[in-house]
Simulated assay, not measured.
Amino acid sequence: MSTRARRTPAVSDLKQERAIRTRALILDAAAQAFADKGYPDTTLLDVAQLTGATKGAVYFHFANKNALAVAVTEEFYVRLRGLVEEVGKAELPPVAKIGRLITRTGEMFRDDTVIKAGARLQIEQSLIDADLPTPFLGYGEAVTELLRAAEAEGALPDGSEPEALGRVLVAAFFGAQHMSWVINDRVDIADRVREVLAIILPGAVPA
């Protein structure tokens, strides 16, 4: 086998790895721009400058700004699903898992740029000429499943219905994080999350 034949796969692999890294950098830059400026005021030039790449490099990976918005929103849900799976594996009672899930989600809304961007893009969905993932469904279903498990253990307040309680809890959380963002740039989100849990599901308030 010639030297060239042996090296070709390695060169191809390096190019692929570099392309993956570049795409990830572009996605992170887009999330930063969307989170800071919103969809209407973000341009592909903004993203390129944040990445340190050319507009051509951005276009190579994403056809337009709509495609970037879809990709960032999809990553938003990938990260939420990852958190749901992580909390699901914890050796905790169902109600405590709910408390951890909601609390950790609040921290992500405060600290994770992709989560901040995804939340903002969902609000600005009518301005985006592309179909974004349906919000909240998977997350709400995960909370409801934990509430059903808690009900089976007799850990819910008397008369509670897991489905209704799940809808109220998820709606209250996402409403609270939105108000925290608008009023205080989410600096106080930990306190707002504790309030939501204390009122709706007191047993889920972390120690």
Rank of each mutant, 00 (worst) to 15 (best):
Q16R: 15
I98G: 03
G106R: 04
E151F: 00
E91A: 13
V87N: 02
L146D: 08
I115A: 04
R104K: 10
A164R: 11
A142W: 00
R21F: 06
V72Q: 01
R192F: 07
T134H: 08
S160K: 00
E75G: 04
I98P: 04
A31Q: 02
K116R: 13
A57P: 00
E141V: 15
Q177R: 09
D46R: 13
R18S: 14
D185Y: 06
I102Q: 02
D112N: 10
V193W: 00
M179T: 12
V95R: 00
L156V: 06
A152W: 01
R7H: 08
E86I: 06
A164Y: 01
A30I: 02
A142L: 09
D28V: 08
S2N: 14
V95K: 00
R148N: 11
S2Q: 12
R194A: 15
R104V: 04
A142M: 06
R18F: 07
G38R: 10
E153Y: 01
E124K: 01
Y77M: 11
H178V: 12
L127G: 07
G82V: 02
W181F: 13
G203F: 04
Q125A: 14
A24L: 14
A152P: 03
R120Y: 03
I123W: 00
G106V: 08
Y59Q: 13
A29E: 04
F34M: 08
L127W: 00
A130L: 06
L156N: 01
A53C: 12
A57S: 11
Q177E: 09
R7P: 06
A19V: 08
A24N: 05
G82C: 05
R194V: 15
T54V: 02
A150L: 06
